[in-house]
Each structure stands twice: as structure tokens, then as C-alpha cells.
Simulated scan of single mutants.
Amino acid sequence: MMVQVYGIKNCSTVKKALDWLTEHGVDYTFHDYKKLGISEDKIKEWQKVFGWEPLINKRGTTWRKLDSIEQEAVTDQKSASKLMQEHTSLIKRPIIDGNGIYLLGFNEEEYDKSL
């Protein structure tokens, strides 16, 4: 099985997920969306799977650094998508995408069940 992992390389949660994948023999490729960006189409695909709200990491420093006007402007899928493209660090991570499997964040039980 080969999956695509989306995230930021220096994120501790992403590191846990990559370690889990390696330990369990799951082949993956990694896409660092902080360095490489992310397409609007990919964000729309994820929004269809997860919804737009779970994709935004509101506990992270990037969200907290936005002014209240920017935060309050995120009211729907379109505005969320635009902001996630401008500030890719806002996207919750990691996202596992492959073979019809989509996982958001790292949850060992979900990984055991799905991968």
C-alpha cells in the first residue's frame, strides 16, 4: 500500500505519523505543503471528505496570529480554502490520502484500523 502524506516536516504530530507508517511497513511519499504549497483542487477534495472546519487548525500559532477580522471572515468552504492556500500552516496535519483512505491528524487506533 502506498499513501501520500501531507503536512509540515518539522511538525511533531507529522513525525509521529511518519514513524508509525515506517514501523508498520506502509510506503508513503511526503508532500510538505509549507514548502510546496497546496492546490485549491486538493483542498476542495479534502473539504468534501472532512468538511472545511476540521481542516483548520485553530489551536495552532498560525491561527492565533491572524487578526480577528481574518478569523471571523472564515465562514464557509470558499473563504476557508482561500485562507488555507495563503497560510498553509493553518491546515491540520498530517493528512493521509491514498487508496481511497483519508485520515486527518494522527490517531494510532484509526491508523491501525485503516492502514
Rank of each mutant, 00 (worst) to 15 (best):
D41R: 01
L18D: 02
P54V: 09
K78R: 09
I101T: 15
K42A: 14
E53F: 13
G25P: 08
E110F: 12
F50R: 07
D112K: 06
M2Y: 09
H31M: 13
I56Q: 07
N57H: 10
T13Y: 01
E72V: 01
K16Y: 10
S79D: 13
T61G: 12
L55Y: 03
G51D: 12
N57Y: 11
H24D: 14
L90S: 02
E70T: 00
S79H: 07
K34Q: 12
V49N: 04
T13N: 10
K35Y: 02
T29S: 15
A80L: 13
E108T: 03
S114C: 09
I38S: 00
I56S: 08
E109A: 06
D27I: 08
A73C: 07
W63E: 04
E23T: 11
A17V: 09
G25N: 15
V5H: 04
K35G: 11
Q71E: 11
E70G: 00
R93Y: 03
W63R: 04
N107D: 13
Y111D: 02
N99E: 15
V14K: 02
K44P: 00
G51K: 14
V5F: 10
E109F: 00
D97Q: 12
Y111K: 06
Q4L: 14
G7R: 01
K113M: 10
S81Q: 12
S79Y: 04
W63N: 06
T29R: 15
I8L: 10
A73I: 04
Y28T: 14
Q47E: 13
K113I: 07
Q77D: 13
